[in-house]
Design a binder for these strands. Structure first.
Lengths: 272, 272
DNA sequence: AAGTGGTCTAGACCACTGG
DNA sequence: CAGTGGTCTAGACCACTTA
């Protein structure tokens, strides 16, 4: 039922579990002298979690296999059920296990792996690489919304919107053409910002806390104007991201970010 | 200190908190008759979490503002501290708040928003759209690894690797050209699988639980062979994803997935 | 009926921060 | 020092599943 490979019994817990707070106090004072040498005492729930993770990784419970019940782990580690439960709950959030009430806990097949794609500020990204960033502002004005833009910003056609068209350079090489429409209700001072000093992304995240975002990524040829601004040929492939952000139920902005394919790479990583 | 907008006091909890289990039992039996009509009773921790989330969204605590302490919410909702703590902890994991021990809980600026990009199985994706999927197998054999492939799979140059080249069609339109190398140690039977019936992605996830993945996404022109296989022109933009997965410290596979830009779109969404 | 996970509680000890 | 979050416990009730 619970093959005792024996790798995680009570004794293996770093702060050897106690039954009364009295004994814990004693333990703690004993530990305090160790703390200076050992790196991190690690909370019991974290140790149980780590134990489960390690054995999952080693294949002790192959995908779909039934794992020990909370009660079994309580007995094995000598901790309370809430502690074991927390370890399990966090593993579930991480997608490593599936739990079914009344049945048991199972090792996940890890099909639903996902990695995160952050909304990044290009300026910080470039500076982080130790390169120079400079922005070329081609448009920064108020316009009346076209039907498409109005719809995406939740405004009426013809309503006032702010429009900026900025080309970002990394060490004088054009890296991104940012065509952006902003809802004036969310950022009334948008046009007074000096975008050679800060980026729209950065500024908007400051004034309008982000609550929702949608994006799409595709590969396509740039428009004639974009090609000219980026200094590339009309048929060169570009990585195009269209992003729409919403703050407190109010659409903030829609942006079309065009990157020369030869100069931009989106990277990601997943680790459990 | 805790402006009583009063939107979430004890009485607003759906299963009106009690002090003894006796009274809870009574409550529960009363509730059981309501359950048929009301949709979801919602656990107290979830209600507290929802309450906080709602007020964060409404801007009651602007980014950086100090939020109520656990003790205050305990008093306000009449629940135990562990319950409030769980609500806070989950909001922290979601990135909506920052907590500092000894200081307090603060509304996050929501800068570090991220969305998830899942590893998807193309077959399921196509079928989910109600379309027909069919795979055309062009290569499926053992080869000796080139230096580049060997390095990414953790093998020696010249070692045996499995190589498949498959073109996936959605309703007879080529959608993806999948060029994949597989580590035989992880999937010894790989070449015996009928890939007109299942996809490499699906099969590999079955035999080798995923423990780590790295990917990059870029826009570029296809190779001459890819263009031919996909039925597109040499200069048409493609969305190219290169993915490497690792299972239990052993590299499993590296794949180059090429999609005609005009037929493929990567989408994502973030919601708190 | 027995076993499982889902959840709540009341109280506790701790480490950390700030005045 | 008081206040904050981080965590653990022992026991409890519940809903659910399986036999």
């Amino acid at each position: 039922m619970f093959t005792s490979t024996g790798a995680g019994q009570r004794l293996n817990l770093i702060y050897t579990m106690q039954k009364s707070y009295l004994s814990r106090q004693v333990q703690s004072s004993i530990l305090s002298s160790m703390v200076n040498t050992s790196p991190a005492p690690a909370a019991p729930y974290a140790q149980v979690k780590q134990y489960l993770k390690k054995h999952l990784q080693r294949g002790r419970w192959p995908p779909g296999a039934l794992m020990p019940s909370e009660a079994e782990l309580v007995a094995e580690f000598g901790v309370s059920r809430m502690t074991v439960n927390r370890a399990f709950r966090e593993l579930q959030v991480e997608g490593l296990i599936n739990r079914v009430q009344g049945v048991g806990t199972f090792a996940a097949s890890l099909h639903r792996v996902s990695s995160t794609l952050k909304i990044r500020d290009l300026h910080s990204e470039i500076v982080a690489r130790g390169h120079a960033h400079h922005a070329e502002i081609h448009v920064a004005r108020e316009e009346s919304a076209t039907a498409a833009v109005a719809e995406r910003l939740g405004l009426l056609k013809g309503a006032a919107v702010f429009h900026t068209l900025i080309v970002h350079h990394e060490n004088d090489v054009p890296l991104q053409c940012e065509d952006r429409y902003v809802n004036p209700a969310c950022a009334p001072d948008y046009l007074r910002v000096d975008f050679t000093q800060t980026t729209p992304t950065h500024y908007l995240l400051e004034v309008a806390p982000l609550w929702e975002a949608q994006y799409s990524i595709e590969a396509a040829a740039p428009t004639a104007r974009e090609a000219k601004l980026l200094g590339i040929a009309r048929h060169d492939a570009c990585l195009i991201m269209v992003r729409r952000t919403v703050s407190r139920n109010l659409p903030v902005t829609v942006a079309r970010l065009v990157h020369p394919g030869s100069r931009y790479l989106l990277e990601g990583q997943f680790k459990p």
